[in-house]
Design a protein around this nucleic acid. Structure first.
Lengths: 152, 152
DNA sequence: TCCATAATGAAAATGATTATAAGTTATGAC
DNA sequence: GTCATAACTTATAATCATTTTCATTATGGA
């Protein structure tokens, strides 16, 4: 993980959202800004635990929930197994590959993510989640190669 | 719960999907065909437990998972808390009201549910889930009435 | 620096779901 | 019909992500 964002910027960001810039919060936010792979709380914990051996998984959960409440993060529940977290995203959709498990951002022109439509059937929309599941491009390619080499 | 579908039809449906038409399966399928309110496994268990006191929550889960595997049901994870089940649906989207908790079917013309698009960005799509969250029509109406009566 | 408040951390609790293992029922060959 | 086998059901225990509780510690203002 490369450090791209300065601590000062992270601190300012936290303060501007009404949050005290504690060490733990800075490191968690930094991790999420640098890692756009939709990690779980556990993954964040494992990574930060190396640098901050005293950090608790409870703090990870507390912090993530606080960040979501303040609008710094959004939660993705595409797997149905656990919550995955994403930094400050412009609204977009997601694809889950059933073969390799990777979660891929999908940017398509959708009236519900581009801000055109703010209601459906009279219901006021606050959040939109578009979840696609299937086989990703890379896994399709591997499959094709495999079949070819076997002359199937 | 009214009994609309005959046992014979339910039996036939189970058999045509390669499933033995046991009493428990018939009752679970019957419940889901008559109750389109996206129940949890727990809700189904509570309702059936009155008529079948020996039924086990494990059977509910086993059966629901079997039904999904065979394509009789689909799973909705919009709440992020628990799985909700839906009978044999034509693909459509869902709305979760954050105020009253109800889940509402949304039928809009979407290229991913009407069968027009079977891939995104080169990824092959097997499932599409459109989850909207916000305040439903009814709760909006109640809110407006409340404000008016208070002259806010 | 002192104090009130908020944040952190460890351990225990929760709750939905799954795994295990044992019992029961159905099915098909004989 | 009888028997063996497989399929289904059930109760219990296990799992695992997340939350709660509560004692300790850090933070920012006075």
């Amino acid at each position: 993980m490369k450090m791209i964002i300065s601590y000062d910027k992270l601190k300012t960001e936290l303060k501007s959202h009404g949050l005290k810039p504690t060490f733990q919060r800075i490191k968690i936010l930094e991790y999420l800004e640098n890692n756009k792979n939709h990690p779980t709380a556990e993954i964040i914990f494992d990574k930060l635990n190396h640098k901050i051996p005293t950090i608790s998984i409870t703090t990870i959960y507390n912090t993530l929930n606080t960040f979501i409440k303040k609008g710094l993060l959004s939660a993705i529940t595409i797997t149905g197994k656990e919550i995955r977290y994403e930094y400050n995203p412009l609204p977009h959709h997601h694809f889950l590959c059933k073969r390799c498990g990777s979660i891929i951002d999908i940017n398509i022109n959708c009236p519900f993510t581009n801000g055109t439509k703010k209601t459906v059937d009279g219901h006021k929309i606050d959040e939109v989640h578009g979840y696609f599941k299937g086989i990703c491009k890379d896994c399709l390619k591997k499959e094709a190669k495999h079949k070819k080499s076997k002359n199937v």
